[in-house]
Every structure is written in C-alpha cells, then in structure tokens.
Amino acid sequence: MLAVEIEHLNVYIRHAHILKNVTLRIPKNTVFVIMGPSGSGKTTLLKVINRLIDFTEGVRVEGVVRVLDIDALKADPYELRKRIGMVFQTPNPFPHLTIYENVAIAAKLNGVARSKRELDEIVRWALEKAMLWDEVKHRLHAYPHQLSGGQRQRLCLARALAMKPEILLLDEPTANIDPINARKLEEAIVSLKDEVTVVMVTHSPHQAARVADYIAVLYDGRVVEQGPAQQLFLRPSTEITQKLLRGEM
C-alpha cells in the first residue's frame, strides 16, 4: 500500500529546474526520510505533495503525483491538504492563540471534533503524542511565546496531529531546536507511524538512522538513491550517498 507515488516529477520555478525527473514510492505507515544537502529540492518536493507549491510564484509542475490514491496535481488542493499535516523548519505556532487554541484550531478547521469534550480530548491526545502534554497541562491558556523553541515546535507537531492527518510532512523539524527537544520530537515521530505516514526531510544522517524506515537521497533535484534505511546505511551505492552519510556534504 502506497501513501505517495511520484513519477517523472519535474518542477520549474521561473526558469530554474528545481526537481528533475523524480520518481518515488512512499509506503503507508512508515517513516520515509528525504535526505540531501541544502538546495537539493527537498522542501519543494514536500510542498508538491500537499500542493503548498501553488503559492510559489512562477511555478510549473509536470509529472504524476498520486497521494492517497488521488491525482494530487488535479485534485482540489484545499481538500487534499485536509488529509496532510505539515510541520515547518521554523516553529510557527500562531502567536495570538493560546497553546490550547493553537491545537484546537486544526481540529476545528477539519471538523474532527463534534463537541467541546471531544475537542478537549483531541487536544490532549495531540499534545501527548507530541510529548508536550506533561510540560503544558497546567498552562494550556498560556501563549506560545512563553514556550522554548523546542516546545513550540512540538506544539506545531501537536497542531498538525489534531487535524488527524493520514500523511504528516516534516520539513527539517529539528533544525532550529536544541538536542534534547530534538530527541523528544524524534521519539514522537517514531511512535506515530502506526497512525500516519511520516515524510520527513533532514540533512542529518544520524537523525535519519534513528527514525527512518525508508530513505531517498536527493541531490541537485534528482533522486540518486532510495530504499530501506538499513540497506542504504549498510551498502550505499552512490558516492553522493556515502559522502552524505559521512557528513561531508
């Protein structure tokens, strides 16, 4: 069963060829990690999956992108995004909403909760899943600026989970947070795969080793290698992958 199936994907932004003939298969209920040096097109690839790429000016997308058995490039992007949560590189909780409201708003927008009680339960479940509940349960009505960077990022994870997505896109979620918070986030990610398919972008081979079931290596807009994580770590078949795994890139 595939969550995402991409064939011969080409993305151009203005005149730059960002993604070049990308073909990928992301199985359901796995943690699929996309690795590559900065500027290799990782974020663009994620944004094609949930069509956030539509907001980029001068973009042209060609190829086949099937997400949850839907032709993602032809589907209504708003309906599509209701099934896909996303966490960004920089924590971006809404500063004018409380911790509770930040999580609840995602559930409300997607009609996940029918009553206040259900909403409370979902908020608690999402915060627990994001391993943040114990730290904020007594201050749910505080504002995000009172949290640390790492806590804010886990709040964003909770917000994405509260919409009960089938796919979760994570764009270098630990890039801007401290190692302890990064570990908590990784633990949360691994525990999630029974419920969602996680597609995560990272440039850290160590992180990939800790969380990935599958890995694709992206370099200069092309997929240079993809497969089960163990196999890729034990027998990397390209020089680019070897360099990337050694942290030389």
């Binding site: 949560g85 960004f88 708003i105 995602a106 927008l109 997607n110």
Partner: peptide, 27 residues
C-alpha cells in the same frame, strides 16, 4: 511573515479560513 500563512494551509485551512486566522492575528 509567510510562515503563518503556510501554517494555515499546512493544517488544511480553506482560503477564507486562512484569511480569517490572519486577520485575527493582525487585529
């Protein structure tokens, strides 16, 4: 900042819902 707009669409907001969140942010 664009990151709040992305946050709205990243949690499945329709355009009018995103506008309403961003308006309340800029109250």
């Amino acid at each position: 900042p664009a990151m709040y707009k992305e946050a709205c669409y990243g949690i499945g907001a329709y355009r009018h819902e995103a506008v309403s969140i961003l308006l309340s942010l800029s109250r």
